[in-house]
Design a binder for these strands. Structure first.
Lengths: 216, 216
DNA sequence: ATGTACTATTTTGTATGCAGAATTCATAGT
DNA sequence: ACTATGAATTCTGCATACAAAATAGTACAT
């Protein structure tokens, strides 16, 4: 039995992301290191290491002497992130092994059709959506790209809990996933990548209204 | 006078990257935290924070109990990084303000033509190349994208010192930069982005032979 | 009420301390 | 010579301690 031996900083990072998904933190407010460390039952050292990692991923921001805070959300940044992930995922798709892609196409199609009921929990829906995208890029041999996508997506987690509730978009999302899967099955890689980019852009627009407009 | 007050971890990170450019570190060898901290005149705490940041950028890798080491170089990873940066920079270009791009096109052209003599120091050549690419993406309003490009490029710095010496490629590099600048001046954004991607792919191939083949 | 100088408190940024894992080295056995 | 075993050493990962900066609070002047 391979007992788990991972650095605390990684476990802390993941716990913080989980809490972020749950909406435990309000964007823009400062993090009190001592308090949070106490709550997590660890010392400030590995906590700070996790915070620094998260800052590197854009989840947090920091300023000298003032510590860390969850970066505020904005329509603008959300659009920026979507554009980036759209480009990265479509690159991943285009450089994947076409044979492998065709193999997983049926599974992708199945997942897309099994899209959870609109009444399902938000958490479940997100998990399902993530799963689909993960499978999609699973054939990418560009390891650095896969890591990068994961990292950028971590930055998007701040938006996850804002996106609960609305049902209508789900069907559209599922439809678009089907479209991508079908194109992959037909071996039309370029078109699939294009459809994937569209999926991100459309998804971005679907979510836009949920994000509070920042003053400025 | 705005006196500089930045966290040590950032200064350390930059110093390590500078040393990396100079080829001070050999890839794959472990970092001794105490020794390096002593050499830099700081304690292990901010040093470790810098190391963790660099690990997040792919410059270093770490494993439980064994600390940090400079990630080994490989043709494969270099290709991966070039593909990523090519996609990101061309995205930056495509989403920039076309008017601004046309404005800076003459400057880009001038820089490309002033490409340093082949006999110049490697450091100078790199600085010049970086400057050109920085100016190119300077009009990108996607802040996250600009940051991301910077971060990915940090990961490429491990390859910088391997690329010294060969003269022939320089002209080709300069030619390609001119091409991009000319297309921008004519307002042909899509074509410019395409030419930029080509520049990265070609540059990658030019450098490939310099990178030692790893066994595996 | 508004602003200012000053003090007290909190909180970060950095240094140091410590336990345990990993590595090295010496020794013994085959 | 080579491997195995175990003690000695080194080094990492985490915890704690400390100094300086930032914040909050208070008294006082305008």
């Amino acid at each position: 039995m391979p007992i788990e031996r991972r650095p605390l900083r990684e476990q802390i990072r993941e716990e913080l992301l989980r809490r972020l998904d749950r909406g435990d933190f309000s964007a823009g407010t400062d993090i009190n290191e001592a308090a949070l460390a106490g709550e997590l039952g660890v010392s400030r050292t590995p906590l700070r290491e996790a915070l620094i990692t998260l800052a590197g991923e854009g989840v947090l921001e920091s300023s000298q002497g003032r510590g860390f805070r969850f970066a505020p959300v904005s329509k603008r940044e959300f659009r920026e992130l979507c554009e980036i992930v759209a480009a990265l995922e479509s690159l991943a798709l285009e450089t994947s092994d076409p044979v492998y892609l065709r193999e997983i196409a049926p599974e992708l199609l199945r997942l897309a059709r099994d899209f959870p009921d609109a009444v399902a929990e938000q958490q479940v829906i997100e998990r399902h959506d993530d799963e689909w995208h993960d499978l999609l890029v699973s054939g990418c041999r560009n390891e650095r790209l896969v890591d990068l996508i994961t990292s950028v997506k971590a930055g998007m987690r701040r938006y996850a809990h804002l996106l609960a509730g609305d049902d209508a978009p789900l069907e559209r999302e599922a439809d678009e996933h089907c479209k991508v899967a079908e194109l992959l099955q037909k071996g039309q890689l370029k078109d699939a990548a294009e459809a994937l980019r569209d999926n991100w852009v459309n998804g971005m627009e679907r979510m836009m209204s949920r994000i509070p407009s920042t003053p400025e």
